[in-house]
C-alpha cells in the first residue's frame, strides 16, 4: 500500500491532523465550545465562496476569513457580554447564507458538498503536509508555553482576569490557532472529522485521567492511534478513511467510558 506516495502523504496527513486537533480538544471540551469546531467549519464555507469569487488563494482567503470571525466572536462575547453560543450561531447562519448566495451567483462553479463534509485525506499534497506539520508544532508550543494561562482561562475566564492572569492575548491566540486548525484540516478531514477530532479524543481521555496535562497527552495518543488504525482498516476494507477514523475514535470513547464506569472514575 505504501508503494504509492499519495498513500504515505495520506497517512502522515491523517496522523498530523489528529495530533493537531487533539491537543486543542481538552480545552475545547472543557470550555464547552465543541460546537465551535463545527461552527467555524461552516463559517469557512463563506470564506471558501468569497475566495472563489474574488480569485484569491483558497486556503489563505478562507483562513483569514475564519480567523477574523473567530476573533469577532471572542470579542463580542467578552466585551458585549453576548453569549458565546448565540454569537457563534449568528455568525454560522450568516456565513452559510453568504456562502450559498455567492455560490449560487457564481454560475461557473459547482461546489462539492461531499468533500466539504467528509474531506479526502487521499488528496493531501506534500505542501499541505508541511502546513499540517507546522501547525502541529505551533499547537504543541502554544499549549506547553501558555499552559497555566490556558488552564485558568478554561477554568473561569472572569476570575482569571480578576487575578490579573493575562488571558486576553492567550485567548486571542487560542481562537486564531483553532481557526487555523479547522481551515487547514478541512480539505483532508472535512467538517465531520474535524468536529469529531475536537471532541472524541478529549472526552475519552477525561474518562481515564483527571489531570489536564495528562489528558492533553492522552488525547494526542488516542488521536494518533485512531488515525493509524482507521487508516489501515479503511484501506483493508475499502472504506472512506475520514469516516473510519471517526468510528475508531468513537469506539475508543465507548471503551474508555465503560472502563471509567467500572472503576467508579
Amino acid at each position: 500500500m505504501f508503494s504509492f506516495t499519495f498513500m504515505i502523504h495520506a497517512l502522515i496527513g491523517a496522523v498530523l491532523s489528529g495530533l493537531s486537533l487533539a491537543i486543542f480538544a481538552p480545552f475545547v471540551t472543557l470550555r464547552r465550545i465543541s460546537y465551535m469546531g463545527e461552527a467555524l467549519s461552516h463559517i469557512a464555507f463563506a470564506g471558501i465562496a468569497i475566495s472563489i469569487i474574488t480569485g484569491i488563494n483558497l486556503t489563505l482567503g478562507t483562513l483569514v476569513f475564519v480567523m477574523l470571525i473567530a476573533l469577532a466572536i471572542s470579542w463580542l462575547a467578552r466585551k458585549h457580554k453576548l453569549q458565546e453560543a448565540n454569537t457563534i450561531s449568528i455568525f454560522l447562519s450568516l456565513s452559510m447564507a453568504i456562502g450559498i448566495i455567492i455560490i449560487s451567483i457564481s454560475k461557473n462553479y459547482s461546489f462539492d458538498l461531499a468533500s466539504y463534509l467528509f474531506g479526502n485525506v487521499l488528496l493531501v499534497t506534500r505542501s499541505e503536509i508541511v502546513w499540517l506539520g507546522i501547525l502541529a508544532v505551533l499547537n504543541i508550543l502554544f499549549v506547553t508555553f501558555f499552559y497555566n494561562e490556558l488552564f485558568y482561562l478554561t477554568y473561569n475566564a472572569e476570575m482569571a482576569r480578576v487575578f490579573r492572569i493575562r488571558t486576553s492575548l492567550v485567548n486571542r491566540i487560542f481562537m486564531l490557532l483553532l481557526a487555523a486548525n479547522i481551515v487547514i484540516n478541512l480539505k483532508s478531514a472535512g467538517i465531520i472529522l474535524v468536529t469529531a477530532q475536537l471532541i472524541l479524543p478529549a472526552v475519552a481521555a477525561f474518562n481515564l485521567v483527571h489531570k489536564l496535562s495528562y489528558a492533553i497527552v492522552l488525547a494526542a495518543i488516542i488521536a494518533i492511534v485512531s488515525a493509524l488504525l482507521g487508516f489501515f482498516v479503511s484501506f483493508q476494507m475499502n472504506l472512506p478513511t475520514g469516516a473510519t477514523i471517526v468510528v475508531v475514535e468513537a469506539l475508543v470513547f465507548f471503551i474508555s467510558f465503560l472502563g471509567a464506569k467500572k472503576r467508579g472514575f
Partner: peptide, 30 residues
C-alpha cells in the same frame, strides 16, 4: 458564588495557586 464545572480537572491546590498566577510573567511555571 463561583460557578464552576464539577468535572473540571483541577485540585484545590491548583485553584489556590490561581491567586499567584497573575504576579508571574507570561508562560511562567509554578
Amino acid at each position: 458564588h463561583e460557578e464552576f464545572d464539577r468535572a473540571f480537572p483541577a485540585t484545590a491546590l491548583d485553584i489556590a495557586l490561581m491567586g499567584l498566577a497573575g504576579n508571574m510573567r507570561l508562560g511562567a511555571r509554578f
